[in-house]
Design a protein around this nucleic acid. Structure first.
Lengths: 251, 251
DNA sequence: TAATAAAATGAATGATTTTGAATAATTTTA
DNA sequence: TAAAATTATTCAAAATCATTCATTTTATTA
């Protein structure tokens, strides 16, 4: 058997199972331990794998380093619950729009098994989406440094070419009269567009956002299904005065 | 048996099984070892196969295509030099297209002072660009996991709305006859488009790429200014036989 | 057609690379 | 800590390779 054939076999088996034991390779390739060992050394030099005691493992790609995001973990537990609840609405093979933001980020682990196609403007989502090899289309446009999101008219133009089964949005304020609001008009524009392009819209909303309002209005509270962990009965009741408003609570 | 017949047979068997042992060919073609060996040498010169110890293999080894992480750290010193030289061509306030890839990545540190606007399809560039707060427009489209680049028809469509002063591309092969080549047709398409949309095109090329050819042709060698650290006089001379070809060397 | 040059072939030689086994050194496990 | 497993190192045999040269085949020209 040719050296290159062995090398290919080793790489392919690694891609399949992530790691291999040296003995496993010796058995399957009918070559001596020395030879396999030498193969592994060479492949490691080529940066194609990492040798570990007893065998080898795939070089895990660190890809994009998570930059500034995911640092404010003060309410991650709540966010995780909300995200999990939101993910329950996703059906197999859905095409979804995933808004930038820390709450929507928590949905990603649940996406793999649903075999969804994701479109997103959130750069902070990218490393995780790549790691899980989830089919992803990135919105093109200008990068906004403060939130690591893609925005701008070019982003809107790009988005406009697509339609989604469902979209999942974060929001800075939710108020029974002012509706959904967010500080940045450009981001608001994109969210608005996403809502229009989606069959169903879900807004993920931790308790701190309820009864708040910020600068730019995105939509009426009746335009999306609100998923929240808040147990502020009063605020929720006030939202539900309008019979068109749908609120999903966790507990 | 005619030489060309043998050559065809060798190529066809390679296409079928990816690799062949020399002995295998000797048996099947009823020719001497010397003859087959000569055949392989010739076919290799024609860039139709790659000779390996004991036989030959197809040029583009599918399993062994190194991903970005694997290629990294390989020859960063060279790449830095090439990137620095390339950056010298940038003028203040230019709008540039920065191709995905490890060599182009090394250009980013030089961009800040030039106050450029960058468009890129390379996700691996994003953290650095954000860190330095360089005005960046991200190409929208489908994410290719192996290289962390954005590709696809939607990417092309997006790109087509822009024009650039200069574009800086990486390339997998540069060959005086075959021109610029890259393994992935989708990436080739995007590179081609970037060239068309730019006033000036620069190809960053470390020594390992010179005189190589891969699957898809992007452009003729005369379509871009080649920046290389190679001191392979012969290869460079061969490129420059065509008076339209411009080569910039480091030293 | 014969004479000649050019190209292709096969065999032989020595150089190089790859391989497997033996053993010493190291790491992991109990 | 000792035993077991894994790794690194070394060496000789085997396989493969590059080079050379005589021979055959093919092409060219007189």
């Amino acid at each position: 058997m040719l050296t290159t054939e062995r090398h290919e076999f080793i790489i392919s088996i690694l891609k399949k199972q992530g790691t291999v034991k040296l003995q496993e390779l010796v058995d399957q390739l009918h070559a001596s331990e020395s030879t396999i060992r030498r193969d592994l050394v060479q492949l490691e030099e080529m940066k194609l794998l990492k040798r570990v005691h007893g065998g080898a493992s795939l070089l895990q790609r660190k890809g994009l380093e998570p930059t500034t995001m995911e640092k404010q973990n003060k309410a991650t537990a709540e966010k995780q619950l909300i995200a999990k609840r939101a993910s329950a609405f996703i059906e197999k093979n859905d095409c979804i729009y995933l808004d930038a933001g820390t709450t929507t980020a928590e949905m990603i682990p649940y996406l793999k098994e649903k075999n969804v196609t994701v479109m997103t403007n959130g750069l902070m989502h990218i490393p995780k989406l790549i790691e899980l090899e989830i089919k992803t289309v990135l919105v093109g446009g200008t990068i906004k440094f403060s939130t690591n999101a893609v925005i701008g008219s070019n982003a809107g133009q790009f988005l406009n070419e697509y339609r989604f089964d469902k979209c999942f949005l974060g929001m800075n304020g939710i108020h029974h009269e002012m509706g959904f609001t967010t500080p940045d008009p450009e981001e608001a524009l994109l969210k608005k567009l996403a809502i229009n392009l989606s069959n169903e819209t879900y807004v993920l909303c931790d308790s701190s956002k309820l009864n708040e309002a910020t600068f730019t209005k995105v939509a009426d509270v009746s335009d999306a299904i609100i998923i929240t962990d808040s147990n502020d009965r009063e605020a929720i009741a006030q939202l539900q005065k309008n019979p068109k408003v749908k609120v999903v609570t966790i507990s």
